[in-house]
Structures are given as C-alpha cells and as structure tokens.
Amino acid sequence: MKNVLLLIFLLLGFSPLSQAQTSDETEIQNLIQNSFDELFSNLDAEKLGDFYTDDFLLLEQGEIWDNAIILGYFERASKNPNRPIRTNRFEFIQTKVEGNRGWVGYWNFATLTRDGQVIQEIKWLESATAVKTDKGWRLDMLHSTRVDKE
C-alpha cells in the first residue's frame, strides 16, 4: 500500500500541470533577477523591453517611475565615471501564477562595491506583477519599499 501511495504522489507531483506552474513561477523569479542584473546593475537601456511592458510602473519609495523616467535614470547613472558595481540577491517569499498573470513578493538585497570594497548594502521589500506575452513574461508593475537598517 505504501508503494502505491508513493507512486501516486510521485505521479501527481510530476504531472504536466504542476510542472507548468513551477516553470512559470521560476520564469517570473528569473525575470526579477535578470531584470535587476541587466537594467539596474548594467544600465542596459536597450533591454528594457525584454523585462518590462510598455506601460510598466515602478512605485519606488513614494515616487512613481515609468519607462521614460527609468531611462533617464540610466542615462544619468551611466555618465558617472566612478559608478559603483551593484550585485543583486533575492529571497523569494511567494510566487503565484493564474493563467497569464503572475505575482511575486520578495526581499531585494543590493551590495554596492567600488575597488573591491563594499560601500553600501541596501535592502528592500518588494512585490511585482507580471503578464505573459507572446514574447514571454514581462513585468508590468513593481512596488518597492526600502527597509531601514536595524
């Protein structure tokens, strides 16, 4: 009987439906990681459309940023000849997918270094929504709250 229950559990756990859900959740989490690495670490403005919808909004610490404001930030930041290196790390709290919509909550950690020395560590509590498009998952909203040092 134990073997039959184990077999049923394994079959249900590896069903195509559960794999699709897990795959979408993983894709959304990768979207978060890769968007911060490519956009906010590398300031690669050409990749904005790879991660964000045209109507994307970032609600950042009481400010509303759209794609135009984000591109302006990239332009200003890229002119800094002594710009620090940003390394991103995430701890995902929960990721949900329902059809072509997804939601994710996570802790965002950024370490800023210059000449091999840590100059600042920043922590945010964030949530984001994503939509599945014909080009894959794209973020359409991100809400970010900076966490003060304890």
Rank of each mutant, 00 (worst) to 15 (best):
W103H: 07
E121H: 12
F14Q: 15
T22F: 01
V118D: 05
I64G: 03
L12T: 12
G62V: 09
N80Y: 12
K79W: 00
S127N: 13
G136T: 12
F109R: 07
I28H: 00
Y106A: 03
N30F: 10
D55P: 06
Q33D: 07
R146A: 10
L31A: 09
T145M: 13
F92D: 04
D37R: 07
N88K: 02
Q29Y: 03
T133V: 11
G72Y: 07
E27D: 14
A77H: 08
R114F: 15
L48V: 13
A130N: 03
A110V: 14
E38V: 10
A68H: 01
G13W: 06
D66L: 06
L39M: 12
K123G: 02
N42T: 08
N3G: 08
D115A: 13
W103Q: 06
A45K: 01
W124M: 15
D50I: 08
W103D: 10
G13I: 12
I28D: 08
F92I: 06
T133A: 11
K132W: 03
M141T: 11
L59D: 04
Q29R: 12
R89M: 07
R146P: 00
R101Y: 04
K135G: 04
L58F: 09
N80R: 10
L43G: 01
Y106E: 06
V104F: 02
Q29A: 14
L58C: 05
V104T: 11
L58Y: 01
D134Y: 09
N42G: 01
N88L: 01
E25M: 09
P81H: 04
R83D: 04
N88A: 05
E98P: 01
R146H: 10
T87S: 05
K135R: 09
T145I: 10
Q117E: 15
L43N: 05
N100E: 06
G72E: 08
L7Q: 07
F109H: 10
T22W: 02
N67P: 00
R76Q: 14
E150Q: 11
T133E: 11
V131W: 02
E63Y: 06
L48P: 05
L71Q: 10
S35C: 06
I8S: 11
F90S: 05
D44F: 07
K47W: 15
A45C: 07
D54I: 04
E126C: 14
Q120G: 05
T145Y: 01
N80C: 05
I93C: 01
W65E: 04
L59E: 09
D115S: 14
P84H: 04
L6I: 10
L142W: 02
L57F: 14
L43Q: 00
I70V: 11
F14K: 05
D115F: 10
G49H: 14
K79T: 03
R101T: 12
F92K: 05
D134L: 08
L57Y: 11
T111L: 15
L125A: 08
I119W: 04
N82H: 15
I8N: 04
F56C: 00
